[in-house]
Design a protein around this nucleic acid. Structure first.
Lengths: 253, 253
DNA sequence: AACGTTTTCTGACTCAGATCAAGGTTTTAT
DNA sequence: ATAAAACCTTGATCTGAGTCAGAAAACGTT
């Protein structure tokens, strides 16, 4: 696999790419000294863009690197014993994927681009070495993994306890929060995954996802135009999911 | 909270407790030099046993330590906005809990003993310092967290895609594997959690869990006497779950 | 041993969401 | 531009598991 840098590699001797990258505040939300950022920058490879449907890594393949999404979206998935795909996550810009490969030295899932996507590849052995020299970097890695664990546990609650409406609403709010965090609109965005992929991820049939979305539209919680979504009843939606202050538990929708 | 050591603390100057602990091979499946084990041993506090129903840490409480289970079992759970408990995991001897508190500096779940339980408390700041000095320890922590991430993702698949029979079978096989790994019988063990707790964890009603267990008994896959379970049709059960071979390929040692 | 409490089991009934079917729309490839 | 493929929507029907109700068993306490 050949690596094509999206920008001349040598520029990082002057200004590191990480430093000028608009995502660094999310990717590195720690106060790394300039020289440390440069050291991190040195080990990162910018890969050439993946086209929609291309695979970043494959379940069972040996684990070498974690990846930070720069633009686009990916999904991770398993192939179950019965041959169907089971989606385990979607990854938006600034998010890290591949961490589940550390144990076992093999990726336990495959990762595929949902649209044209660029990623930074971070060879894990280098990252581990570097984390030994930069304690705050090590702490940051712990944090990212810890966060992933508690997020996944939230997801388990969602899958186990919530009904179709709550699942879809949680999904939309989760995306909304992720977009907001990276500076995009929290109320108006484009779903890069199909209804089928949403259903697969949420443990729902396509038809159910479609029906729920239609219902939300009729209730004027969202406006939909194909893959474009606008959340117009944010508070109402939060109430549905149960995020809201515990006081208004009694109120109806 | 006062700490009562289960054995005189000073013995660790001669033989570290970790070294003599029967779980060390699981808790520390890395070749730590003796002096490194001793250093780890120094920072670990053995707490007095928790009685059934006692809380180890509480959701929202500030995060200081991770815990290794020595004997007994714990559950972790959230209280949802509607006030019900949602169990997110069960922890058996040699397993580590509390890791999800690193991000956020607060435990995102509560942990409660299901029976009389002893744990080792490992103050995280000390562990982090020590991991800076012992690279293989740092790697081990990464591995444990990574493992947790991929296990949780398996659980997500289970919750999202499987029916009641498959869920209960997966649950029993999962326990079986965990008991086997620590040297106990893989086919005969005691469930320390109630049917209600199993159902809560698997996203099923108590009645459904009970019915499935009864059905498994009739099909001669298991024999049940209250909380005692014997798996008599292991192969059949693995077939039911389907993935067994996949999981083993990736996970087993 | 006797009591209340909690847990487990079983049956009858209901319903949310799956499945089946079919038509409409958007995307992709040529 | 156009055909093929993939995706989305809607309606009708079916079913697995939830809910309700009550009996039986297990457990803890005095």
């Amino acid at each position: 696999m050949s690596i094509t840098h999206t920008a001349p590699r040598f520029t990082s001797t002057l200004t590191s790419q990480c430093q000028s990258c608009s995502l660094s505040a999310l990717c590195l939300p720690i106060a790394l000294a300039d020289e440390d950022i440069n050291r991190l920058d040195q080990i990162i490879e910018r890969k050439k863009p993946l086209k929609k449907g291309e695979v970043l890594f494959r379940q069972g393949q040996s684990f070498d690197s974690v990846y930070a999404v720069r633009t686009g979206t990916l999904k991770t998935f398993n192939i179950t014993s019965s041959g169907e795909e089971q989606i385990t996550g979607f990854y938006c810009p600034s998010e890290l994927l591949g961490l589940s490969g550390i144990d076992g030295n093999v990726y336990p899932v495959s990762a595929k681009a949902l649209e044209t996507t660029t990623v930074c590849e971070i060879p894990f052995s280098h990252l581990e070495d570097l984390s030994a020299q930069i304690p705050s970097l090590k702490h940051q890695i712990f944090k990212v993994m810890s966060r992933k664990i508690s997020d996944d546990q939230q997801m388990m609650v969602l899958l186990g306890k919530k009904n179709a409406d709550e699942k879809v609403a949680s999904f939309l709010l989760n995306l909304s929060n992720r977009f907001k965090k990276r500076g995009y609109s929290a109320t108006s965005f484009r779903l890069s995954m199909s209804r089928g992929e949403i259903g697969n991820y949420l443990g729902l049939a396509v038809e159910t996802v479609s029906r729920v979305i239609t219902r939300f539209q009729k209730n004027e919680m969202i406006e939909v135009d194909g893959k474009e979504i606008a959340i117009v009843g944010l508070t109402e939606m939060q109430k549905l999911v149960g995020v809201a202050s515990d006081c208004d538990k009694i109120k109806n929708i």
